[in-house]
């Protein structure tokens, strides 16, 4: 007791709050980890800016294509966004539906197996996806593209002429969709399964059917998680390199035509394909496109954060 009193008096003299060593060690470690990630991010950004300065300041006619960096990167940005958007539009509803099936509809054993299989999709290397897209999906899509050209050509997306190989923007987008499906469905599954029983019961007690219960208590609760999962998926789709490089038949610039064989490349695929043959200003130009991709990804993530936070009061987190 006396020693404790002495200790207290000593602490009071030093006027330091009492903290255990473990607590301060852990606080230091986690703060360090947080700072480290900021440093890495700043380092990458600094590298990209520094290395792309040459390309930005170079005269327009010296850049590949002869019209300056912005004209060079424009079609690539367009291709990147279109491919990623197709992937997102296909994978998000599918991923959410799979997650709902696993959490609220499937019998337990089927749910566990299916969840495992979906997770397995994430473990397949992207080069395998690329090869599958080239050798299996693309030929399989050819009849559909021909049909779309004949019947749907009034929609700009299906204007044609249809690709004979199937190596189109739509095929690339679909391959990307399958690649990001496990991310979206895994995160959606996680948040859906954590929808509080309290609120699910509230909906059921009001006479909600299972689907109505999901609409009232599960989807609103999981919304921010689904958006977060989609953004992670989008990030992967934006940056995916090998699969797109293998699948997409590249020639030409900006077009909304998704079924032809002349498509803009994507930033990441373009870097992978061009880098081995580039030197000097060419490398700097490619790094500049990488910087643009970095900025796009950052903007997408900030937009997603904004969307999630806009109705934070109603998020269910309080």
């Amino acid at each position: 007791m006396t020693s404790l009193d002495t200790q207290r008096r000593k602490d009071a003299q030093q006027s330091k709050p009492v903290r255990s060593r473990g607590d301060s060690t852990f606080a230091g470690l986690s703060t360090g980890a947080g700072i480290l990630i900021l440093l890495v991010l700043a380092g990458v950004a600094a590298f990209l800016v520094a290395e792309s300065l040459d390309a930005i300041s170079a005269p327009a006619e010296e850049i590949a294509g002869g019209e300056g960096v912005w004209s060079y990167v424009g079609p690539l940005v367009f291709g990147t966004l279109v491919a990623a958007l197709i992937a997102l539009l296909v994978a998000t509803p599918l991923g959410v539906a799979i997650a709902l099936f696993i959490t609220y509809y499937a019998p337990k054993r089927i749910a566990a197996t299916l969840g495992y299989l979906i997770d397995l999709l994430a473990a397949i290397p992207s080069v395998v996806y690329g090869f599958w897209g080239l050798a299996a999906l693309a030929p399989a899509m050819v009849p559909f593209y021909a049909w779309a050209e004949d019947n749907l050509s009034f929609i700009p997306f299906f204007a044609g002429p249809a690709s004979a190989t199937g190596r189109t923007m739509l095929t690339a987008g679909l391959v990307l969709a399958i690649m990001i499906l496990p991310i979206i469905s895994a995160i959606s599954r996680e948040v859906f399964s954590q929808a509080p029983a309290l609120h699910r019961e509230a909906a059921l007690a009001l006479g909600a059917t299972r689907w109505e219960m999901i609409k009232m208590a599960v989807l609103p609760y999981g919304k921010s998680g689904v958006i977060g999962g989609s953004m992670l998926g989008l990030g992967r789709a934006l940056g995916e390199t090998l699969a797109v490089a293998i699948v997409l038949s590249v020639s030409g610039g900006i077009t909304f035509n998704l079924i032809s064989s002349s498509n803009p490349s994507t930033i990441a695929a373009n870097i992978a394909l061009q880098f081995p043959e580039s030197s000097g200003l060419g490398v700097s130009t490619l790094i500049f496109t990488g910087l643009v991709l970095f900025v796009i990804t950052l903007a997408v993530n900030m937009l997603a954060r904004y969307v999630v936070n806009r109705r934070a009061d109603f998020s269910g987190a309080n």
């Binding site: 509080p196 309290l198 609120h199 019961e201 509230a202 909906a203 007690a205 009232m216 208590a217 609103p220 609760y221 919304k223 109603f314 998020s315 269910g316 987190a317 309080n318």
Partner: peptide, 9 residues
Amino acid sequence: FQRPNPFPT
């Protein structure tokens, strides 16, 4: 119910 459960969203 035992615990108040208004829909938070």
